[in-house]
Design a protein around this nucleic acid. Structure first.
Length: 290
DNA sequence: AGCCAGGCCCAAC
DNA sequence: GTTGGGCATGGC
């Protein structure tokens, strides 16, 4: 009988949070709950009304990890109201994914996960990441009938070769992971310090994807936006992938390849909450239009 | 079977 | 600074 922690939540829906493409290590159970690993802890989250139960979490873990991870101190209700008042279309998308929250994920895990995500599909991204964790992560023991593993640190991944990664089936991304790990361990603070609130999204994006000395291999415009949004809590990031191109075309009439106009529109219309708006749009397009 | 996936790298303008 | 070909792998 493992420990559990319970707390009342609002603007919170497990499917919306864990199935909107921001994270890859959470899996839905038959009872509708989600089991996953983050920050080296395996837990199960279930929701009954407005009561969230985190099985496997002590109160200490809740306060140190899950409270921040789930972004529980942030008022999504207010953001939703503001977005919907400014834009009727986004209001409609919000109604389909009203319980979305932007997880505050570990920066290194976010970097690697989204490098893997490039030109890839979600089921296979999840497989690659689990392969990587099983081979190079720490053994966290058995939880809910499965052995669980942490996400391998940059120190570990910086010491392996592209050949070592062959069995992980990362394809041409293997090289990006190894190179990025080496760059990251050279000076981790260079990247982790970007999480600080006084550094804006554009600045952080430049460091990880543009500046010659610090840019990370495999991190282009889209992946960089995902990293700043999901790994650094820069809520103005607006990652534009094929799904966002489609939904921006479908709902707003943009040319499907006119990424610049989409980014400009998002910045002007959604501003500091562009990343949250993006998640509503992504969830809407993925779940409501096919 | 063939197109596609939360795109990026790199060379050539 | 922009454009376009090439790209590992496997889901559907």
């Amino acid at each position: 009988m493992s420990e559990k922690y319970q707390i009342k939540v609002k603007d919170f829906h497990l499917d919306h949070i864990f199935d909107c493409g921001q994270c890859f290590r959470w899996n839905k159970e038959e009872d509708g709950s989600y089991t996953g690993v983050a920050f080296g802890k395996a837990v199960n989250m279930s929701l009954d009304g407005d009561l969230l139960t985190i099985d496997g979490s002590t109160e200490e873990d809740f306060l140190n990890i899950w409270k921040d991870y789930l972004d529980l101190d942030f008022d999504y209700g207010q953001v939703k109201e503001k977005l919907a008042a400014e834009d009727r279309v986004i209001g409609m998308a919000i109604s389909e994914g009203q319980g979305i929250r932007i997880l505050k994920q570990d920066l290194w895990e976010t970097i690697v996960s989204f490098i893997i995500s490039a030109n890839n599909n979600i089921p296979r991204i999840k497989k690659c990441i689990e392969n990587l964790c099983t081979k190079y992560g720490d053994d966290l023991g058995q939880y809910r009938g499965q052995r669980r593993y942490s996400f391998p640190g940059a120190d570990v991944l910086s010491k392996i070769t592209v050949d070592d990664l062959a069995e992980i089936k990362l394809g041409y991304r293997a090289k990006y992971i190894v190179e990025t790990a080496k760059k990251f361990v050279e000076n981790p603070e260079k990247y982790t310090s970007l999480i600080n609130d006084d550094i804006d999204g554009a600045t952080a994006l430049k460091v990880i994807s543009k500046d010659k000395d610090t840019k990370l291999m495999g991190v282009g415009p889209k992946v960089a936006n995902c990293i700043t949004l999901f790994g650094m809590a820069k809520r103005d990031g607006f990652p534009i992938d094929v799904w966002i191109k489609r939904v921006m075309n479908h709902l707003y009439g943009f040319d499907v390849e006119d990424v610049n106009s989409m980014a400009k529109f998002a910045a002007e219309r959604f501003g500091e909450n562009a990343g949250i708006a993006q998640q509503y749009l992504f969830y809407y397009m993925r779940n409501k239009l096919d």
